[in-house]
Write a protein that binds this DNA or RNA. Structure first.
Lengths: 144, 144
DNA sequence: TATTGTTATACTCTATAACTATA
DNA sequence: TATAGTTATAGAGTATAACAATA
């Protein structure tokens, strides 16, 4: 047989699911080591890309805005984020990562050993290819 | 410059995170359309590969065994799974997908349009490459 | 009128600890 | 003694609906 049969769509979907489960397990375990839930760590991850309003956080976290209040409450109580009023719209609050919050999310990422080892097992060209393929298969939606 | 600079590890981690978030969002939305939580749909997905004991479900779902009782309770109440006693060990219960449960998880998978469209936008050779790279980056652990 | 953030409420998910039945 | 599954409990995540303040 000159060429192997193409991967069935369902097999690729299944492998994506398996990869997600493995990644999420690694991420959650790393978060727990820092005393964080996966939602809390995910929130810090969003904020590590830049300040966001409560509303923007809800969008990024794919959850209702009412949930963000509690999540940010708990993070703020632990000194990992701050709420600051918007200077231009008194309804809006900006959420910022504190230095301690930035340290926490960095530690979480550095603790994802399974994922890091898996990626490190690929050659540089293969990592580039994976990066490229993921970018095409999961194009990021335009934001705000 | 003859060759492009290799993708930074942090950039690849970030893209992996973004891609899996997009996948998970699609999966959760598809589950909600079927009246399922993501945990419930994930449980049906595990069972679609074959029967599992309560203990095996806990391992596959990466959660404590005590949680599985409630998750399976709710699925069973809706007729999506059944519990059957093991013929060889009276402590053990096997969880089976019903026809309705199999229909539900199939519908969920068929409803993941964003993911399907993303994958369909790749050529066959690229889908094969993605399948292969994910398999190497996230090798599945040996199971019981 | 519409939007931002919050509160109240109810359900689900999750871990820990203690328990029963069985091996 | 150890294991499978359950129950009790408490904390966290989630959606819906209603609300006050602001635009």
């Amino acid at each position: 047989m000159p060429t192997p049969a193409p991967v069935a769509d369902s097999a690729l979907m299944q492998r994506l699911s398996d990869s997600l489960v493995a990644y999420y397990r690694d991420f959650t375990a790393a978060a727990v080591k820092e005393g964080l839930t996966s939602t809390q760590a995910n929130t810090l991850g969003v904020l590590s890309r830049g300040t966001a309003t409560m509303r923007e956080l809800a969008t990024a976290l794919s959850c209702d805005a009412s949930n963000v209040t509690g999540v940010v409450d708990r993070l703020e109580r632990r000194g990992l984020v701050n709420r600051e009023p918007s200077p231009t719209d008194r309804r809006v609050k900006h959420v910022l990562l504190t230095d301690e919050g930035r340290r926490a999310i960095t530690t979480v990422r550095d603790s994802m050993l399974h994922t890091q080892q898996g990626l490190a097992s690929l050659e540089a060209a293969d990592r580039d290819a994976l990066y490229e393929l993921l970018g095409r298969a999961f194009p990021q939606r335009a934001e705000g």
